[in-house]
Amino acid sequence: MSTLELIRNYKTQYTPMEADSLVLPFYMKQSPHSGSLERNPICIIMHSEESPEVGILASTMSQYFLEKKNRRYIELYTEFLTKWEQQQNYFSVFPKAFVFEKIKEVIDSFLTLNPSYVTFELTSDCSVFFQSLVNGYNIYFELYFTTDLKDGVEAITNIYKDGRTIFAYGGSIDTVFSQIDSKVCQTSYEVESTQSFYGISETAFASTEF
């Protein structure tokens, strides 16, 4: 069932939906309730005596994460372009297209970690300094543009947890994100999806009857 079909099928006066709403279906045994968040995403709980239809659930969740990632990508890249307009002089040695491609790569890699927060600043060290929160880890990541390496860039990270450094590493963008992933993301999707499925349904619903 597609998102649009879900919206069409389950739109009621109690669950007003817009065409671009995100939909997260919930399948719970012996529960006649459904509900919606005050804002997107809208969640639907459907009563079912059968086992959850995991296939539908998984594809909808996957679509949800993809849409969320795309939206955040656009936000962050737009923010980068705004800052670039003001501070591009730091990077005058490097072709604009090269800088942009690398920044896109870093933003995409960050979003793959499913962070709860990402911020960044351009620096006079010819670098972009990022800070991100993932699963309670504070990730500092700096992408340096440099002529002393054949790749033209070097990525460096420091990871803190509860005020202590737990990891520091430098290398290519791929290598560093692979290392970050291995340190902080073993459970990121699991935690996110658990919160989405149970946390929201327990606390954020204005419960309504179909």
Binding site: T157, Y160, G163
Partner: peptide
């Protein structure tokens, strides 16, 4: 210079934000 300096600078920035 180069990589060592970069590692030291990133660490200093992160350090100040954290502390």
């Amino acid at each position: 210079t180069n990589g060592i300096k970069r590692r030291m600078k990133t660490s200093a920035k992160a350090f100040i934000v954290e502390r």
